[in-house]
Amino acid sequence: MIVEAREVSRSYGSTPALREANLSVAAGEVVAIMGPSGSGKSTLLHCLAGIFTPDTGEVWFDGRRLDTLDDGRRSELRRTAFGFVFQFGQLVPELTVTDNVMLPLLLGRTRRRHAERRAAEWLERLELAGLGGRRTGELSGGQAQRVAIARALVTRPRVVFADEPTGALDTLTGEHVMDLLVGLAREEGATVIVVTHDARVAACADREVVVRDGRVCDPYATGAVR
C-alpha cells in the first residue's frame, strides 16, 4: 500500500467529519472517492495528503507514518512526492501558464532553464503547446484544469490528489480532462486519488469507494460485490 488511512477521525469544532475512516490504496492504482455532499470526502483527501492532521488514527505513506511528521518534513513530502488538482483557484491568475507550471520546480530549486524545458514538455503532453505565454486568468475552465494537471505532474509525484477536478466542466470537456489526468498518471506510474460526484469521472478509476457520514464504505472490501 502506498497510501493508507487507518481509523482516521477528524472533527471541525464539534462537527465530526470523519469517523474512523479506513482506506488503502496500492501503488499505481487510480481510486475514486464518491459520496454525498458533506460526507467527508475532502476532509479524507486532505488527511491522506498530510494537509490536515487527524484527531485520532494514522495516515501512512509508502511505509512511513505521515501524521506524526513535523510540519517542515510534511510540507517537504507534499512538495516532492504529491501533486494536487482542485476544482479551481489553484493557479496564480497574474502569472503565465508556463510560470504556473514551473512554480513547483522553482520552489524545489530546479534551475530555471531546466524548469522551462520541463514545463514546455508537460504543456505539450496536455495539448497546451502554444498557450505558455497566456495568463491563466484568461483561459477556459478546461484549459485551466489541464494547466493544473501539468503543474501537478511536472514534479513527477508518486501520488496525485484531485478534488472535483472536473466539477466545473461540461461532460465532454470533463471527460477529456479526466482522460489526460488518468492516462498521463498511468504513464508516469503515479497513483491517483480523485474525489468526484460524477460517475463518469469515477468510471475512469480502477475502483471506487463511497464515503457516507464520515465512514468509508468499500463494496469490494466488504464482499458485497466480487
Binding site: A199, R200, E208, V210, C217, P219, Y220, A224, V225
Partner: peptide, 19 residues
C-alpha cells in the same frame, strides 16, 4: 442499504466497461 451498495457497485462496474 446493503442491496443499494451492491447495486451501486454493479452499476459502476458497468460504467467502467462502457468507458
Amino acid at each position: 442499504a446493503g442491496y443499494l451498495d451492491a447495486q451501486r457497485a454493479t452499476h459502476m462496474r458497468r460504467m467502467r466497461e462502457l468507458t
